[in-house]
Design a protein around this nucleic acid. Sequence first.
DNA 1: ACGTTGAGATTGCCG
DNA 2: CGGCAATGTCAACGT
Lengths: 219, 219
Amino acid sequence: MRLVIATCSVDYQGRLTAHLPMATRLLMVKADGSVSIHGDDRAYKPLNWMSPPCRLHEEEGRWVVVNQRGETLTITIEAVLSDQSADLGVDPGLSKDGVEAHLQELLAARPDVLAEGLRLVTREFPTDIGPVDLLCRDANGAAVAVEIKRRGDIDGVEQLARYLERLDLDGRLRPVRGILAAQQVKPQARVLAAARGITWVEVDYDRLRGESLGDLTLF
Amino acid sequence: MRLVIATCSVDYQGRLTAHLPMATRLLMVKADGSVSIHGDDRAYKPLNWMSPPCRLHEEEGRWVVVNQRGETLTITIEAVLSDQSADLGVDPGLSKDGVEAHLQELLAARPDVLAEGLRLVTREFPTDIGPVDLLCRDANGAAVAVEIKRRGDIDGVEQLARYLERLDLDGRLRPVRGILAAQQVKPQARVLAAARGITWVEVDYDRLRGESLGDLTLF
DNA sequence: ACGTTGAGATTGCCG
DNA sequence: CGGCAATGTCAACGT
């Protein structure tokens, strides 16, 4: 990695046109060929950049970075305040833990959180356009399809509506009603759900996790 | 801005849990308080980070960054290879051209590009599921809703179809037809638009801008 | 290789 | 400050 602190102006010509006037900034050149230009704010996002694969041509007072699509990033350098290189080696990489998969587990264990008396029939119930997250029966024995999202958006409502349309073709299930479960349900999704006769529930992930832990300690 | 090259391991506890094993990386601390950890690849995205507002507590061999939501980023430092600070000042900022907002301005000024005799009624016409980009009247006085995208995709067609559904509930507008305008309309979007009775138009941004400039010089 | 989907999305706009 | 949409979205995953 090469780190240069320089007074420079920047021009990007590609999917759009962008310009940065002359100022002091950090230029970061990574081993993968990418170049990014950072100011002293905007969190981790650079002011401008070029993603790999691309090539850096360095001239006197002028860097030109070109990628395969012909987009160019031109850096005009007035003064270099610092120029430093370091060999970082290959990073051993990151391990993550997903929230959304866990949400399905928790709701499969406690479907009654979504509606009183709701009982799980199966997870990932298959239809010919994809699996329904949870298939349940309510207190009256009627079928209920549950779609789980971290964020409930219009897309989620339409997805669930398509599932319900397929499930209603099955005489053993009909009539099937739908519940959209999400940590947050957007206003637009609420309107569309109402128009489609679909119920929505906002789920408190932390509280649900707490209750599950409570259950575990009880048994 | 402070730039530290160090051998370190990193733990993030917040919206998810993540761990980075010991390796040499760049630690970037910006004036806005943000901290990011870069490896020598992954383009401009850091391996891990904390967005502002947050606070950095620095101890011997250990940095702890905490934000207001209680999320923490812990950096355990084994060795510091370099530690450098620079005052970059406030960046004068980026100017852009060629994004969707621009396209909307140009089409609002020249709606006849989309269909002969088309006249603008209003921009950003509100519905309860979001605003329609352009509401127009055609040569016969019939209402036309225009959805503008940089790239016309299936999502854009469905979005416009939902707007049309809502607008058709308004007796003063009904019947409303739709036009999807984009610099590029994808094949799948063309098929779906046809099935929904929606017209699509590919717009040449550079030519449109040229014509608008032409108009300006004429008057 | 291409299309689809999620992201600790981030960022800017507008009410 | 919150809701909402765009992003040069990027990146992972399935076909």
